[in-house]
Nucleic acid binder design. Structure first.
Lengths: 246, 246
DNA sequence: TAGTAGCTTTGACGCAAATCAAATTGGGTG
DNA sequence: CACCCAATTTGATTTGCGTCAAAGCTACTA
């Protein structure tokens, strides 16, 4: 897939438009953005940024999935974000990456050189506004997730994650026959465990339990069918209506 | 304490200046802010906002401490933020509160009516910029906390919380003789438990254990002395250098 | 001064999830 | 096709934290 194709299929002239950062930019501003942007592809498993390293770009995911993780010295790791197409990476004004960002599938990033981006942002109020909205959404998602990490049981944690992934796929692909939702897990059991603050064995056991109880069906390891979304949401502990993660 | 006193002592002409949201505002803009702001006092235990309720202001804490919590239907609650003086409350563009915000001590808030504030913000780029920075800081704090909730042991959780509180007090009050830091816990054992994803009994037990092991000293229930900050940080699991919470 | 109520501590016990260990599956490769 | 390796599942055992229960502090009130 050529970058031109990506541009046309995924992004229009400005990939960041995924979440409309520059949907209100005028032609001049778009040209400025184009002048400082470039595409980069990362293979599955490859790091995009490493915590502490210098980071001279910001950008957004065009295709693929990446994870945001924090680690302790002894190796314990906690995922703190799941980056899907259109999600923003990097922090304007910050020189060094604060997290490990790793591609879990082949990822195409649309990057902007950081300094010129910051400068453009300071001249272009609606970019800052949009970035503020996106950041507030991420903050809500992070806080929602704190409830999952701090107070839910293993089964509820799994159901919460599946519920979020199912909801996302349902809205994206509308791949539902009657009321059932089918989607592919974008994460290994270990990555799920890192997200949920569990061990991979516990994740596996709870997946088996949900399958045994008919809440989900599994074809192979990755393809999940949710016959009744309501049932899954109930298993998740039914906190409000489940904010999206990001 | 009169509001005039608060203005002079705590805020200058614009209380939000605590975190310099409008430090770059010109005189006209400050006057506009003054025109839409008001002070309000909440007693300990009193709710400031309730999740789902309409919220027609944003604002910042001037004095006192408030907590941000999420709850499940069965009553399980998770604290997702601790609001200290200068912290911002509310989300521009959102009609209904997403969290329960409760005063844990007497709290004075400086509020701005939401609609005019949003309108002012859209005309005043540096307010949006500052708000973006503050939100990014909160997001970092939330993600740091996800590691605590997901991967740390009870003892490490307590040490992490104490370490953050001690660090904050150390920078605020410089109340250290030689290397020791002394501060008052602003939270009950139950509130600590809600923050850490533990029960209050476990919090109590771990506090006792840290005391027994000489990591901390306690006078009464609330006053804590940390003889060696390094030791406490080591107990916390020593992830990087401990980001601030907010 | 005694009484009460909220917060805190401590103890005994049980359970959910971690740990340790092995077996099974399945996709990719020579 | 047979092999290999990584991912996953399943089982046995341990353990950290939750649950239930009771008692101790401290501050406030009558």
């Amino acid at each position: 897939m050529s970058l031109a194709a990506i541009k046309n299929i995924e992004c229009g002239d400005c990939p960041i438009r995924h979440r409309a950062v520059c949907s209100r930019c005028d032609t001049d501003e778009l040209q400025e953005l184009d002048a400082i942007k470039y595409y980069r592809t990362y293979e599955a498993g490859q790091p995009i940024t490493w915590s502490g390293d210098r980071m001279d770009f910001v950008g957004s995911v065009v295709t693929g999935i990446a994870t945001l993780t924090q680690t302790m010295e002894d190796g314990r790791t906690q995922m703190v974000g799941l980056l899907l197409p259109s999600d923003f990476v990097g922090r304007p004004g910050r020189d060094n990456a604060a997290y490990n960002v790793v591609a879990t599938s082949t990822v195409v990033m649309c990057c902007f050189r950081r300094k010129p981006f910051e400068e453009l942002m300071s001249r272009t109020p609606h970019i800052a506004h949009r970035l503020l909205e996106m950041t507030l959404d991420e903050l809500d998602a992070a806080r929602e997730w704190m409830l999952v990490l701090g107070r839910k049981t293993a089964r509820e944690k799994i159901a919460s994650l599946l519920s979020i992934l199912a909801r996302r796929d349902a809205s994206l692909q509308a791949s539902k026959a009657d009321g059932a939702i089918v989607f592919d897990l974008p994460l290994t059991r270990e990555a799920m465990a890192d997200y949920l603050g569990l061990t991979l064995e516990t994740v596996s056991r709870q997946m088996s339990a949900l399958k045994r109880d008919g809440v989900i069906q599994l074809e192979g390891k990755r393809r999940v069918t949710v016959p009744e979304m309501e049932r899954l949401i109930a298993e998740a502990g039914d906190d409000s209506d489940g904010a999206c993660l990001s």
